[in-house]
């Protein structure tokens, strides 16, 4: 099992998500962001950087996070990224359609482009488990691999094994927020599959 650390903002959705027993068991360390120190990552294999962190604290921690990936670690980033801190980051904010599923011929806009990637191939997640709404997309650089695209362009979820010695797994999805605010059952499906994959799956 990989050792997983997660950054904790101190706000209510994160408190609930990271302390829910079925998820907490996957975290070797829950690191309170205002007291984050680089040595907190010693011995960790994976660092989850959740959505909706305080921008100044995130940007202060970013060099240490990048070094963690440069040394072979796996970094996961959830949610909208209006501040540049991820290698090769190209984020585009888009209006959020919370109600696409009520439209005629409802289309979430998700396009699975890597069904053979172990996350999906090995049964940890499927497209339905990644489907709620989005706040934008990422545009990728050469060498980055999108796992799920959006029909109007851009990626919902991608893996970057070229920008560092480690791996960046980046998604616009923000299950850490929605699950912890008691909202959107699909986000629970996502975490139920994604965390076991991070711990035990082929990345």
């Amino acid at each position: 099992m990989r050792k997983i650390a997660v950054l904790y903002s101190g706000h209510a959705p994160h408190f609930v998500t990271f302390n829910t027993p079925k998820y907490k068991q996957y975290f070797d360390k829950i690191i309170y962001l205002p007291r984050f120190a680089e040595q907190d990552l010693d011995g960790m294999d994976v660092l989850i950087v959740p959505s909706q962190l305080h921008n100044k604290l995130l940007l202060e921690a970013a060099p240490a996070i990048r070094r963690f990936a440069d040394n072979g670690g796996v970094v996961v980033a959830f949610g909208p990224q209006p501040w540049n801190w991820i290698p090769g980051q190209n984020w585009e904010t888009r209006p959020t359609n919370f109600w696409w599923w009520l439209e005629k011929n409802a289309d979430s806009g998700l396009r699975m482009v890597a069904p053979d990637y172990p996350l999906f191939r090995d049964g940890f997640l499927d497209e339905a488990g990644c489907t709620w709404h989005q706040h934008g997309v990422f545009h990728l650089q050469e060498g980055m691999q999108s796992l799920i695209d959006m029909k109007d362009g851009g990626s919902l979820l991608y893996v970057d094994k070229v920008s560092s010695k480690g791996t960046w797994i980046v998604t616009t999805l923000d299950p850490d927020f929605h699950f912890g605010s008691y909202f959107m059952p699909a986000t629970e499906k996502f975490l139920d599959g994604f965390l076991p994959w991070l711990a035990c799956g082929e990345i």
């Binding site: 909706q52 921008n55 959020t96």
Partner: peptide
């Protein structure tokens, strides 16, 4: 102000 992504535009 939480200083988080959603606080930029008060959106979501």
């Amino acid at each position: 102000d939480g200083g988080h992504a959603f606080s930029l535009e008060g959106r979501a």
